[in-house]
Design a protein around this nucleic acid. Sequence first.
DNA 1: ATTTATTTTTAGACAAACCTAAAAAATAAT
DNA 2: ATTATTTTTTAGGTTTGTCTAAAAATAAAT
Lengths: 219, 219
Amino acid sequence: MNYSVSEENYIKAIYNLNGNKQPVSTNALAETLDTKPASVTDMLKKLKAKKLIVYQPYQGCRLSAEGVKVALNIVRRHRLWEYFLAEKLKFEWNEVHAVAEELEHVSSPKLIERLDEYLGFPRFDPHGDPIPDHEGKMQTLKQVKLTQLPLHTPAKVSGLTDQSTDMLELLRHRRISIGTAVEINRKFGFDHSVEIKIQDNPLFIISEQAAQHILVHHE
Amino acid sequence: MNYSVSEENYIKAIYNLNGNKQPVSTNALAETLDTKPASVTDMLKKLKAKKLIVYQPYQGCRLSAEGVKVALNIVRRHRLWEYFLAEKLKFEWNEVHAVAEELEHVSSPKLIERLDEYLGFPRFDPHGDPIPDHEGKMQTLKQVKLTQLPLHTPAKVSGLTDQSTDMLELLRHRRISIGTAVEINRKFGFDHSVEIKIQDNPLFIISEQAAQHILVHHE
DNA sequence: ATTTATTTTTAGACAAACCTAAAAAATAAT
DNA sequence: ATTATTTTTTAGGTTTGTCTAAAAATAAAT
Ligand SMILES: [Mn+2]
Ligand SMILES: [Mn+2]
Ligand SMILES: [Mn+2]
Ligand SMILES: [Mn+2]
């Protein structure tokens, strides 16, 4: 099957709102897709007719098995393009999303397989999110919040729970990105800020608000 | 201004039918865009309202100055992506067109500038067609048909006047592509076929029908 | 110069994706 | 248990891009 750009955007939005696990509300979809609830209802009917979601009026919607498959494919394309933009075209990691939002709809399977190969089969996008393979499988890391990383334990930044522009800007300024080696030197009980060391930079302190949105994995 | 995928396809089609020089007929457009003449008329009215073409009923249409600008931009994107697909993702030169037809509509100026840079500012696409630079300028070579290349004159394949699948297939089989060094060893007056030498392959003969569609440049 | 054939445009419809305003259902508050 | 609030759906419209069938204009043939 081949889906329209709009249909694909809806399916991905449902997936991103955890619609493969819990039901997603009409309003939540309207919010993230920047459209009106009435328009969402229209589309939900169409997606239900195509058996991509299960949907009963007033009950929210969730992805069907087929819907999850389609969603994972769109997510795969999105994240591979993000990786390409960051790695090859040297886009900043806060710029890649908007462009990938368009590129993800180019529907040549061969293009995506070749791109994947060309990029060396990356498993994580520039935001640390896992890239599904051609079968939809993706690797998950056991991640901890930076605030919970034990002292003097070498770890790597592997994800973010806040991907807002403000957050990305702060991290760029601090020269922290996905893959950056990090180690906690000291924790301050008063405001829960942490003193960290990255690569060969001098020690510096990061606030609790920021640190709790930075995910790391170690060992 | 930002144009829809359909508008862009029409503008590029008009350009490819030499609509910056001669008027293009409604039927010719319908033919190349695989649509109906009535639909073309509708779109021509819209493009005229946006001042991208000059159009009087029953007189055909041609691109305005602004229309040419827009067309060159689309052609630039199309050919840069073709180059990327052939050069980096190792697509065959007969496969690149269809995918580029979709990629050309992704509308991030920064993406295109970065891609151009990443590719090393190529000046010709895999079919030998010139790639407009960011100002719309493109390089033209003084080309001759292979049939008209003088004997024993080293030259390079630089273009095709027939880009049909059949033609591209034949050339791939003969291992001829854009940039291939070629030299004529002998011409046969009877059927105007030519015996040529490419790179370190043994001599072989090519028919007049094929040779007349292969453009080369020398010296 | 008519007639015939071709090309192009108009008229009227349709599907996709969106909208506003009003009605209905589900929740929350008294 | 009513009443009030929020959420969701329906009803009816709009825009974009397409279509078929019929009419009009142009070009070609007698
Ligand atoms: Mn998108
Ligand atoms: Mn991402
Ligand atoms: Mn196109
Ligand atoms: Mn080309």
